[in-house]
Every structure is written in C-alpha cells, then in structure tokens.
Nucleic acid binder design. Structure first.
Lengths: 116, 116
DNA sequence: ATACTATGTCGTATTTTAACGTCATAGGGA
DNA sequence: TCCCTATGACGTTAAAATACGACATAGTAT
C-alpha cells in the first residue's frame, strides 16, 4: 500500500480511512460483532469461532488494538478482550457525518447540473 | 491481502468489509466528499484537487466504481462522475446497524462479567 | 486535416496485508 | 518440581494495494 501521500489529506479524512481500514476485513468485522455479543470475552474463544488460525486472529486483534478500538486485559492465564465503546461512539459519529453529507448530495439525474 | 478464507464469513460481514475497504484510503474518502460537494463533477477536476497523479486518482475512481458507489457517464470529451446516493443510503444503514450493535454492548468495566 | 486536450489503459516497482507454522513465555495443576 | 495450557512474538510466503510514467484513444477547435 504505502500511503506515501497520506499527509496531504485532512485529519478527518485520514482518521475515517484508518477506521475504515480496520473494518476492511470480514474477520475484524466478525471480531467486533463477537465482542459486542458477549459480555465476557477470552482470546482463545475468539479464534475458536473464526475460520482462521489462532495466530492470524491474534494479528487481527493487534490491528484493532493498535487503533484502540478494542482493549485487552491480562487476567492470569487468559486475556479479556473488550470493545472500547467510548471510542466506537466517536467513530460512529464520524461515519454518520460522512454518510449524511454523501447521501444529502443530489443524485445525478435529470435535475442535476450535469444532467447525467 | 488475499482474503482466502473470505467465504467462511457471513454475507453481511463481507459486504461491510468490502465497503469499508473502499473507504480505507483517504484519497477515496476525499473523492466521495468532493463528489458530494459538487453537483457537477469531472474526472480531471478531481485529480487537480488531490495530491496524487492523475492515473492514481483514476485507479481510486475505478475501485469506487467497481462497488457501484459512484457512476461515470461519458459526455463527449469529459466524464461526469456522480455518487450513487441510493446505494450510499443502503450502506449507511448497514454501518448504522453495525455501530448500534457495537456501541450498545456494555463497556468493559466493574459492572461487566469479566470485570476488566 | 492537424494539433491540442482530456480521458482511459498498460506495465511495473514498492509497500502492505493476510495467513500460517514455529518458537518463546508464563500461569496453574498433578 | 514438572508438565500442560494459553497467550504472545517472530519469521516467511503469497497476494493485493498504492503510486506513477509511458502509451493509446477519442473529441474539439483552428
């Protein structure tokens, strides 16, 4: 990928893209949904419910953790992964604003300026 | 990337991940915002407003077009790119449901089962 | 008809993801 | 103590994304 020119975009665009990238894999979407559905959540359980190797799941967990979307607390031999709901609410708001602006735009058609 | 095991996830998870991937680059976020802000929209103008080469922008346009998030109609020497607002509204709904479920989950803390 | 302009296509080098196997570490129980 | 188990770290391979230059094409205007 590389994102060499990333610096030239606005902070909002970069932040939205970062989160979107975090959700850009079905495994990570599934992980978030899984954590949302369970109040208690152990790393091993997550790997067991996904069709991926344990280490691959761990890699996805690390990516989500890098963005602080999820948190992991070591509890003896197991680790409790949890959603960062506070951050998720902020992110939700960002996506909401983005889609509001995008869908508010007049669809291309006979009434549009370009007419296409 | 590869997504070899993609088939093992639900259609919803795959669809969400696909759209998220489309928005996983600041250039594509910027493109959608640009198209939303203008009622008329030409390919060349888009490249001019982004810090990327024309061909790179074209590539991003193609990716958005592959998901049908945007449409392009040839009009003589120029091309009118437009948002597919109908599809965007559907996508917005999917993201909304996803975030609703994620943020509704009780944050990890003293009241949670895991206690972390 | 010719030159100019604006778009699209191709090829490619570099970087990043994805997926997994193997090894390391550390807590708990026999 | 010794072993088992569960997690994390490392290394590697294959596939995909990113970015761009060079070329092709087609419409417009002089």
């Amino acid at each position: 990928m590389s994102f060499a020119k990333t610096a030239a975009f606005t902070a909002e665009q970069q932040q939205l893209a970062r989160v979107a990238k975090a959700l850009a894999h079905p495994a990570r979407v599934a992980i978030v949904q899984l954590l949302a559905s369970k109040t208690t959540c152990i790393s091993g359980d997550i790997a067991a419910e996904l069709p991926l190797a344990r280490t691959t799941v761990f890699q996805h967990l690390q990516e989500l953790k890098a963005l602080d979307l999820i948190r992991g607390e070591i509890d003896g031999l197991t680790v409790c992964y949890c959603l960062n709901t506070a951050l998720l609410r902020q992110v939700q708001q960002q996506f909401l604003s983005f889609f509001e602006a995008a869908t508010a735009s007049p669809a291309c058609g006979p009434e549009a300026a370009c007419g296409c």
